[in-house]
Every structure is written in structure tokens, then in C-alpha cells.
Design a protein around this nucleic acid. Structure first.
Length: 479
RNA sequence: GGCGACGUAGCCAAGUGGUAAGGCAGGGGCCUGCAAAGCCCUGAUUCGCGGGUUCGAAUCCCGCCGUCGCCUCCA
């Protein structure tokens, strides 16, 4: 099977072929660090985490770059409000963001460049664009001249005439064309500045991503990711800069854009003030719940966030985890017919899962195949399968659910180890069984309830009583 | 005004020409002292609406209605 990926540039799914065989160069737009991460950031982190995990499952070596925008109007303004140094503020929120990444359990990017550490590459590109006539200087500012780029607008499907007719482009007397954008902004009093051939100033927003791509991945890359709201103008401008500078097309082989998270039917955004921070979410729910919400939908679709969806995702996650539970006590072993069915499902699941993921990372369809495996495992367990007989199926569920989807399906008990408490729990179960035989249900239930309060769940089956540590509690992000 | 996406059972959602995956919730049953989990059965003659193409359409075309996004910072 060949992986096919939807490319925003061509608006269709295309066979995935990398520039270098076996290697993927992937760049994902990271945050501007002036505030805590919200759920939209989490969506982006998780979507590209899952994509990366699948690429690695397919055997690719992924070089994954995610930037931090640590120089920007918003940072400067926030720092001014708080009476802080902008760099200190940015550093603080980078640390916060990385806490969030750890809490969400995403694979760590290979490189995490910061604008402030890329000035050489940024200035080199700005100068190159000036030299080639794609940019012009006005009073210490450098602007990109969109009229010099014949195919400007190809990513977002816009034409300059349309833009000119646009209602909300603010007139700027310095710009030759309203759609021209700043590569370098002349210094204003009280702002961080860097020396440059065009005078003191700081980079415009778009140039950083072009420069970091060039520096860390090369002139052409395989995948460029980001939210759909970045298609215009940010990614459009990136293409214009990079292709004008290098003279090579395409700058990016596959433009991948994830759908926006919505709250109460509207996009969640800082300007609308309806955003939920990741910390707020994690104080109530475990990170896998958000992962499940995303897995259940397609990454390009908008996702509505609300409590009912959270509850649905939580239940579905529990069903997945319950399939990892062991065989019944003293399981006699399942017969051949049952085992053959289980074996057939193992094969069908892997094939179905890969076919779904190969089709533009169709996680919802892939997840459906996982649930079919779940049913087969549960059927086999009910039919008396032993742990050894269940293991191949559970191994597959673990591989696809944990390694590829990034979920945590195995109970991860905290505190005392399993081995430490096992003899004690077994003792209590034995005592309780005696009580049940003697119909002393009040006492038996007391033991069950008190153990439940301690996070140990007892379940009576026809074959005996099983126990397990309660799945982990929701926890706030750890330091 | 320009560009674009979407509209599938109570809810989430896959499915882009061959007769509707999966999950959540609900109902019935099995199991059980009870509980929990699990298993079995159960739901759209139908895919926003109206036309058209086709032997055949949720899937293609046209029109309409509705929701949302981008065009300004934004994952």
C-alpha cells in the first residue's frame, strides 16, 4: 500500500514520495510564545504527532522541526503590559509550552529553533531577496514585492486582484502593493532590535519560517504542517519568499493543514476570548481523552469541543483499555475455532488499519478497525482464552494504539508497585470470597467499596474475582 | 464582495458510482447476591432540499437552503 496525502496546494490526495528515500523532512508551525497554550495548540501538536508516528511506523526517518516565534508584536505588547523583558517573557512561555508537550505525550521535535537564534539565516534571506529584486527598502523597512512573484496566491487560491478588492487590507503608505508584507521591520523605540544592513530592526513574521526551513531542512522539504488559518497569508508568503530566494519549486511537497477546534460552534481563538487552556483541560481530563476526540474525526475537519464529546471519547477510551485486561482466572483455553477467528481478525485489523492510515491518515476509519479487534479479543476472553492465547491480539492493539496513536492503554499504576500489593489484595479477595459464600454480602461489598476507594477495582466473574488498579486519575500537568 | 470547507441515525463519525464502517447514548437478553466489565440482539429503505446524468448516486452535474473558516494576529 502506498501512503496518499492530501496536499492543500493541489487540493487533492497525492502519492507520498519523499525527496530522499526513507527520510521525511517535516516542518510544523509552532506557537508565538506570549501566553499559555490553548486547546488549539494541543490539537496541532497531537495531529502532527500522530502523523509523525505513522510515518515512523511505516519506516521513515522523520526529521521534525517546530519553531518558536519569540520576537513579535504580541510578545512585545504583553511584556510592556506586565513591565517585563520581552525575552524573559518568551522564555517563560517556551518553558510552559514544553510542559504542555510533555503532558500531552508528544514525540519531541528533532529541532526547535527560535527566531532570536536564527538572525543570520533570516538576514541572509532578506538580503538575497533584495539582491534578486523581490524586495525593496523603505525607511529601514524591507518589504516583499508580491507583484514580482508570478504565482503568488497559488496556495490559497487567491489572486492579487481579489486581494486588492478585499475590504480589510489596511493602507500602508510604505508599501507599493497592499499585499506586500514586511521582511524586516525598522526599529521602534523600546523594542528589541538587531543590527542589519538596512538599519536596526527585527524580522517580519513570515520570514522566520522560510529561514528556519532553509537552515534546518534545506531548500525543499516534504511536509509543512500548520492550522488551516495559516494558509493565508502566512504559508502563502512563506512559499513566495522561499521559492523566490532559492529559485526552486516546490518549496514544500505536501502542505498539510489541520482543521480548527471550535467551541460552541466558533473557532477558538485568542481574539474571540473563548479559548480554553491546555492546563484547564488537563485539570479535568487526561490527555488521552483529547487524543481520542481527534482520532475519531479526520484531521482536516473542524472539531467541536464540548462536554458530551469529552464523555464519549472517555468511554471509547475505556473500551479500548478494557480489551487489554487479562484472561479470566484459571481460564481453560479457547477452542480452535475461536482462536482461528482471533487470528483472522489480527490480520484483518493490521491490513485495515494500514489501508485507512495510508488514505490521508484516516484515523477514524483506522480506529474502527481497532474496535473490531477489541470485540474479537473480548469474545475470545469470554470463550476462555488464556493470556498466552490473547497476547498476539493484545500486542497488536498495543502496537497500533500506543505506538502509532500515542494512547496509553496499559494501566500505569502509580505509587506502590503491582508486586508489592498483590499478596495483600489476593488475601482480601480470598476473605471476601468466603464471606460471599456465606452470603455475608454487606461485608463483602464493604471490602469491594473500600478497595475501590483506594483505587483497586474488584470484579466478580463466573470464574472467580479479578482485580486491577483503577485507570489513572486525571492529573494536572506535571512540572 | 472574493476564496474555501462542510451538512450521513439522539450525539460523534467513516464512506466519493454498486446498494450505509466504528464509537457514545438508548432498548431487550445472557452472566451476576448486587455492582462493574463483557457477549448477543436491536436503530438511517436512507445520507440538508429540489432537479439532472446513469442500469445503478450519500458518492458525479446544476440550483437552492443552512453552518463554519480565511481574506487582520491566530494551531
Amino acid at each position: 500500500m502506498t501512503l496518499r496525502v492530501y496536499n492543500t496546494l493541489t487540493r487533492q490526495k497525492e502519492p507520498f514520495q519523499t525527496i530522499e528515500p526513507g527520510k521525511v523532512r517535516m516542518y510544523v508551525c509552532g506557537p508565538t510564545v506570549y501566553d499559555k497554550a490553548h486547546l488549539g495548540h494541543a490539537v496541532s501538536l497531537l495531529v502532527y504527532d500522530i502523523i509523525r508516528r505513522y510515518l515512523e511506523y511505516k519506516g521513515y526517518d522523520v526529521r521534525h522541526v517546530m519553531n518558536y516565534t519569540d520576537v513579535d508584536d504580541k510578545i512585545i505588547n504583553r511584556a510592556r503590559e506586565l513591565g517585563q523583558d520581552p525575552q524573559a517573557l518568551a522564555e517563560h512561555y517556551i518553558q510552559e509550552f514544553e510542559k504542555t508537550m510533555r503532558a500531552l505525550g508528544v514525540l519531541w521535535p528533532t529541532v526547535q529553533p527560535r527566531v532570536t537564534q536564527e538572525m543570520d539565516w533570516i538576514q541572509r534571506m532578506v538580503q538575497g531577496l533584495l539582491d534578486k529584486g523581490y524586495a525593496y527598502q523603505v525607511e529601514g523597512n524591507v518589504y516583499f514585492d508580491v507583484t514580482k512573484d508570478e504565482d503568488y496566491g497559488k496556495l490559497s487560491g487567491r489572486r492579487l486582484e481579489d486581494l486588492r478588492a478585499g475590504v480589510r487590507i489596511e493602507p500602508d503608505p510604505n508599501k507599493r502593493h497592499p499585499a506586500d508584507f514586511a521582511l524586516w521591520k525598522a526599529a521602534k523605540p523600546g523594542e528589541p532590535t538587531w543590527d542589519s544592513p538596512w538599519g536596526p530592526g527585527r524580522p517580519g513574521w513570515h520570514i522566520e519560517c522560510s529561514a528556519m526551513n532553509l537552515h534546518h531542512l534545506g531548500e525543499q522539504i516534504d511536509i509543512h504542517g500548520g492550522g488551516q488559518d495559516l494558509i493565508f497569508p502566512h504559508h502563502e508568503n512563506e512559499i513566495a519568499q522561499s521559492e523566490s530566494y532559492t529559485g526552486k519549486e516546490p518549496f514544500v511537497r505536501y502542505w498539510v493543514h489541520n482543521g480548527m477546534l471550535r467551541v460552541r460552534g466558533e473557532k477558538m481563538s485568542k481574539s474571540l476570548g473563548n479559548f480554553i487552556t491546555v492546563d484547564d483541560f488537563l485539570a479535568e481530563h487526561e490527555p488521552d481523552v483529547l487524543r481520542m476526540i481527534l482520532l475519531n474525526a479526520h484531521y482536516r475537519s473542524p472539531i467541536d469541543y464540548d462536554e458530551p464529546h469529552v464523555q464519549q471519547a472517555k468511554q471509547a477510551l475505556t473500551r479500548l483499555r478494557n480489551a487489554m485486561r487479562p484472561a479470566y482466572p484459571n481460564a481453560p483455553g479457547a477452542d480452535d475455532e475461536v482462536l482461528q477467528r482471533l487470528q483472522a481478525q489480527i490480520q484483518a485489523t493490521r491490513e485495515g488499519f494500514e489501508a485507512a492510515m495510508d488514505d490521508d491518515f484516516n484515523t477514524a476509519a483506522a480506529l474502527a478497525h481497532l474496535f473490531e479487534l477489541v470485540r474479537a479479543i473480548n469474545q475470545a476472553r469470554d470463550a476462555g482464552a488464556t493470556d498466552a492465547q490473547l497476547q498476539p491480539a493484545q500486542d497488536l492493539l498495543r502496537e497500533l494504539g500506543e505506538d502509532v496513536f500515542g494512547l496509553h492503554l496499559q494501566p500505569q499504576a502509580e505509587g506502590a508497585s503491582q508486586a508489592d500489593i498483590e499478596p495483600l489484595v489476593e488475601l482480601l479477595i480470598e476473605v471476601r470470597s468466603e464471606l460471599r459464600k456465606q452470603k455475608q454480602f454487606a461485608l463483602a461489598d464493604l471490602i469491594r467499596d473500600r478497595l475501590a476507594a483506594l483505587g483497586i477495582r474488584l470484579e466478580d466473574t463466573p470464574h472467580g474475582t479479578t482485580w486491577r488498579r483503577e485507570t489513572r486519575e486525571p492529573h494536572a500537568n506535571q512540572p
